[in-house]
Simulated assay, not measured.
Amino acid sequence: MAGTLLAPLSGIPLERLMQMAVERGYSAQGEMFSVADMGRLAQEALGCQAELLCGGLGGPNRDRVLQHLVAGHPLLVPYDEDFNHEPCQKKGHKAHWAVSTGVLLGVQGVPSPGYAEDPELPGLFHPMPGMPCQPPALPDEGSAGAVYLLSKQGKSWHYQLWDYNQVRDSNLQLTDFSPSRATDGREYVVPAGGVRAGLCGQALLLRPQDSSH
C-alpha cells in the first residue's frame, strides 16, 4: 500500500514482496515481527528511504511523524488490531501493520491561503494542488487540539481516521507473542528479544529515494 505512493509505476506485486521476505529470512509465511527487517525490505523492494523511528510516536517523535505525513509521505506502524481494524491494547497478541498516508488536524482558525474548503463538508480544508501553503501549527501533545491519522490495515476495504494517541498507545504496548500463534503448530520468524524488541515503540518513515528529510 505504501508502495503505491512511493513507486506508483513499479507496481511491486504482493507475491513478490512475500517471496523476498521469505528468501531473506525476514518471514516464514507473511508475518513480520521486526520493524528493522520491514525497513530493509521496503528499501530493497521499493527503492525508497526507510527511517527507523524508535521511542514511540509521542514526545519529540510526534512532530517528526506529523511533518512527515504533512509532506505527503507514508508511515508504516505496527499496532494491535481490534475487531473493527482500529487500534486497541492486547499486549501484542493482535499485532498487525497499518499504513498512514495523511493527517487530519483540528485547529482553531481558518488555515492560511493555499487551502480550499471542502464543497460538501463545511469546516474541512484541503491544501490546493500546486499552491504554496503553510501547514497550520500542529496542536501540542497535551492540548485539546484533535489529531487523526488517515490509516488503512491490509484486511480492510476502507481508510479510517484513528486518534493519534490511540495509535501511539497501541504501538507502545506490543510486548508479547500471541499464545494462540505459539501453539498453532506453524513456524514464525521472531527476532531476538521477541515482539518487544522487534515492534514495541517503533515505526517506519518512508520517503522517495530522491527526497530530503
Rank of each mutant, 00 (worst) to 15 (best):
G3N: 08
L5R: 11
L5K: 06
L5W: 11
L6T: 06
S10N: 14
E15A: 15
R16V: 14
V22W: 01
G25F: 00
Q29G: 12
E31Y: 01
M32H: 02
M32D: 00
M32K: 00
M32F: 01
F33W: 10
F33K: 03
G39A: 07
A42S: 15
E44K: 12
A45M: 08
A45E: 03
A45N: 10
G47Q: 06
A50R: 04
A50W: 01
E51C: 01
L52A: 06
G56M: 05
L57F: 06
G59H: 10
D63R: 14
V65A: 11
V65F: 04
Q67D: 10
Q67L: 05
Q67I: 00
V70R: 07
A71I: 09
G72C: 08
G72V: 10
H73W: 11
H73V: 05
L75H: 04
L76N: 03
P78W: 03
Y79V: 03
Y79T: 06
E81G: 03
H85K: 12
Q89K: 11
K90W: 03
K90P: 00
H93W: 15
A95V: 12
S100L: 05
T101H: 02
V103N: 01
V103H: 04
L104A: 10
L105W: 05
G106H: 10
G109T: 15
V110L: 11
P111N: 08
Y115K: 11
D118S: 15
P122G: 07
H126P: 07
H126M: 06
G130T: 06
C133Q: 12
P135F: 08
P136C: 05
P136A: 03
A137D: 12
G145A: 08
S151K: 03
Y159V: 08
Q160I: 08
L161P: 05
L161E: 08
W162C: 13
V167D: 02
R168C: 15
N171W: 02
N171T: 11
N171V: 07
L172G: 07
D176H: 14
T183C: 09
D184A: 08
D184S: 02
R186W: 06
R186G: 00
E187I: 06
P191N: 11
G193H: 05
G194V: 08
R196G: 00
G198Q: 09
L199N: 02
C200L: 01
Q202S: 04
L204R: 01
L205P: 00
L205S: 01
P208M: 09
S212P: 00
